[in-house]
Structure formats: structure tokens, C-alpha cells
Design a protein around this nucleic acid. Sequence first.
DNA 1: GGAGAATTACGCAAACCTTAGTAGAAAGGA
DNA 2: TCCTTTCTACTAAGGTTTGCGTAATTCTCC
Lengths: 138, 138
Amino acid sequence: MQYWTEAEMSQKKTKFLTEVELEFMSKLWELGEATVRDVQDALGPTRKLAYTSAATILRILEQKGFVTSTKQGKSFFYTTTLSKDTYQSRSLRNLSEKLFDNAPATLVARLVDDNDLSEEALDEIRALIDKRLRDDKR
Amino acid sequence: MQYWTEAEMSQKKTKFLTEVELEFMSKLWELGEATVRDVQDALGPTRKLAYTSAATILRILEQKGFVTSTKQGKSFFYTTTLSKDTYQSRSLRNLSEKLFDNAPATLVARLVDDNDLSEEALDEIRALIDKRLRDDKR
DNA sequence: GGAGAATTACGCAAACCTTAGTAGAAAGGA
DNA sequence: TCCTTTCTACTAAGGTTTGCGTAATTCTCC
């Protein structure tokens, strides 16, 4: 049950996930649709978190509009309202803006500098860029 | 003047900057060495922030070990202890790990997907990839 | 229908982030 | 010297994040 109005919702709309929220969203992106229990289990045995804590995180994600829930039987099933791709793009644009002076080439340069990209990955990326450049020309 | 021991310092060492801390670090990376006043001025007129607030942020950055200060005359001069390049790498690695399943190729793919990328930027990125492919072959 | 188990709603607390005010020190000019 | 300005150290308010406990609700099974 939501206690805030539409205006209040939009007012507190945040664009980015906190650390723990991202952790939960990642699981939801994997699972597709999941209960509190599902997510808690998916976190694995090393990550100890009380059931009620997991429930709280999901409730907050719903408040913020990142997930929706539907009641099925006893419990709620949660799904993301935001695709992983979209959030990846949003995060990258933010990082590029805030830390790379809006120069994506610098970002790639830094990435290529210290990550071991396989030759296949590099080929793949170049193919993407070529395709993009061809499409833009049309 | 530092009131915490070396042990306490290392204990509260954080790897990442908060929003405002990054804003300040960016200015320090630009300015090289700066007083509170310098940084406050560099923020520009649209960003209103009390002098004492700016001083607090710099003090916190020093507590966290991201900057050091030296007294010159009346006031302190602050400098970063962490290069922008290093922090860029660290941030990218974190993003890749947390949001891209440690697949840098996916990261670049998503970046290239972005519609706002200029053709020049794409060309630059392709040149980087090509160079890397050539270097790897050798 | 009632007992027991699972689930949800709510609220609290500790830690941290952002911002700024206050008090006092330091410096420098009239 | 004394007044003014500038700077630093400290503190605190208000918001957010993370984690969990408690109480109430819902479901199931006998």
C-alpha cells in the first residue's frame, strides 16, 4: 500500500541506486520475478541479511519506483521497472559526465589501459562501432 | 591538525568519493593546489555554498586521506593524494564489477549504444581499439 | 474454527552525508 | 594597540542508508 501521492512520488524520485539497492536489483534482473525469500536466497550464504531487512530493501525500491510488486497468494512478487541495459547506460553517462569531462573516448582509453580485454572482445567492440558509424551515415 | 591515529585512519579508509567530495576533488585536480577560497570560487556562482561548508568538505577529504594540506602563511593549501587517472580506473573497475558482470566489452558496447555519442567520439574510440589490437598482435 | 508458520507494515537506531553556524585564532592596517 | 577581516576547529541539524525487531496479517492444515 502506497501512502504518498503522485506529486510526492515524483518529488522524491532518485535516478541512481545505492550500494545495497544495486545488489538487490542485480538479483531481480537475474531472477526476473521474485519474492523476498527468493532474493534473500539468491544473495548466497556469505551475505547474511535478515528476512525483514531484505523485505525492507524491496519496499524501498518500490517506493523509489525501481520495482513493482503483485500479490500472488500469500506473498508479493517483485519485478524491476527499469531494464539493466537502461540502468547501465544511465550509470555510464553519469560517470562520463562527472569523472571524464564528458569524453567517452577517455573513458574507453582508461578501460583499455588497465583491463585485459580479449582480442575477441576488442573485435566485437570494433564491429559495434563500425556498425554504428555506418548507421549514422545513412 | 589530525586527532586520529594511523590505525584509526586506515580503519575508516574509504575507496570512493561521495557526490560532493568528487565535485571538490575535480576542482583540486584542475587547480593543482588550492585554498578553501580558491575551491569555493572555482565552483562558480550558480553553486552557492558557504565558505565554512567548503572548508568542512576539504577537512573531510583530508580525514579520508584523499588530500593533504600544508600551511602557507595564514591559510592551508590543499592538494590531492590520488591522481584523477587512478581514480578513474578505480571507478571504472568498480562499475564494471558491480553492474557489468566484469565484462568490459559489454560496458563499451553500452557506451557506444548511447545515441548522444558524436561521430568524432566514435572515431576516437575506434582508433583506441585499433591501436590496442595492433599492439596486442606484436 | 484455531494453531502454527510465513509474510508484511511500521518504526527505530546507528552510521554517514551535506550544509552551515559559532567561537576563537591569526594577521594586518589605522 | 585595537578593530576588522579572514581563516580554522568544532558542533549540530536534517536527511539518507542499512539493518533489524515487533506486531499484525494472511495462509494452510488439522
